[in-house]
Amino acid sequence: MRLTDALPKEGSQKRRRRIGRGISAGQGASGGFGMRGQKSRSGRGTRPGFEGGQLPLYRRIPKLKHFTVINRQQYTTINIADLASLPANTQVNLATLMEAGLITSDDGPLKVLGDGELTVPLQVEAAAFTASARTKIEGAGGTCTETD
């Protein structure tokens, strides 16, 4: 056996295309780059992200911090300090707060925030509670019930 005998099986490999070797080779003259224009010249065609003069994507998107949430959940919020004026063992939800005048507009489900102090026990029904609001309501002897 000789080194010249160690060849791949006939038809198992395609030979690589040799461009720029004359018109009979199939990829002569312009070498597959066409006739004229920016993409036929030597060197880099355009830089990455270039969109032909249109403002590129990396400049169109917002630059700082983060993207805004598209379908953000809107809540009607109330602080613990506002609930302190209610009598003890009151059932608190969005409807009762509207009747009492503590909330003037219904902007969505009720969310209780933890700003202020609470001394009376209340039964609060809301869609969401902050962690500090939950601890203050339960610390005063009340209950927190999450509704959907």
Rank of each mutant, 00 (worst) to 15 (best):
T135G: 00
D148P: 14
V124N: 02
G43L: 12
G37K: 00
L118F: 03
G142P: 04
A126K: 03
A131R: 11
T4G: 10
L3G: 10
R17E: 09
T119R: 11
I80S: 01
K14P: 07
L102M: 10
L55W: 02
G32M: 04
G34D: 11
D115H: 04
L97I: 00
R2M: 15
K9W: 12
A133T: 02
E117W: 11
P62S: 15
K14W: 14
Y58I: 05
A126Q: 00
S42T: 10
F129S: 01
E138C: 10
T147W: 10
P109H: 13
R41P: 02
A126H: 00
G53S: 06
R134A: 12
E10L: 09
K111R: 10
D107I: 10
R17C: 02
T68K: 11
R72C: 04
G20Q: 03
E51Y: 04
P109W: 06
G108P: 09
V92Q: 09
R17T: 15
R41S: 07
A127P: 00
R16N: 05
G37T: 07
Q13N: 12
F33Y: 15
T76P: 04
R2E: 07
D5Q: 10
Y58V: 03
G11F: 11
A127C: 05
I103Q: 07
R60S: 12
L122D: 01
L57T: 15
P62M: 06
S12G: 03
G116Y: 15
Q74I: 10
G32R: 13
P56C: 00
R15Y: 15
L55T: 14
M35Q: 15
A29R: 06
N89F: 05
M35I: 07
G52R: 03
S12R: 05
S85F: 01
R72W: 05
E138Q: 13
A29C: 14
L113M: 06
M35K: 08
E51Q: 06
F129M: 01
F50V: 13
L94D: 07
A127G: 06
V92I: 06
D107V: 15
D148T: 14
A25Y: 14
T96L: 08
T147C: 11
K14M: 10
T77P: 02
G142L: 03
G141I: 15
R36V: 07
G43S: 14
L3D: 12
I78G: 01
A131V: 04
N71I: 00
G43E: 11
G114E: 06
Y75D: 01
E125V: 02
G11Y: 11
L102P: 10
F50N: 09
L118W: 00
A128K: 05
P109Q: 07
N93R: 05
D107W: 12
R134W: 07
Q13S: 11
G31R: 03
Y58P: 01
I80V: 07
D106Q: 14
T147F: 09
N89Y: 13
S24R: 09
A127S: 08
S12K: 08
P48W: 05
G43D: 07
K65C: 14
G141H: 13
Y58L: 08
T46D: 06
G141W: 06
A88M: 04
I19V: 15
A25W: 03
A126R: 00
K39C: 13
G101P: 10
Q73T: 05
G116H: 09
K136T: 02
A131P: 04
D115T: 07
I19W: 04
L118Q: 03
A100G: 15
F50W: 12
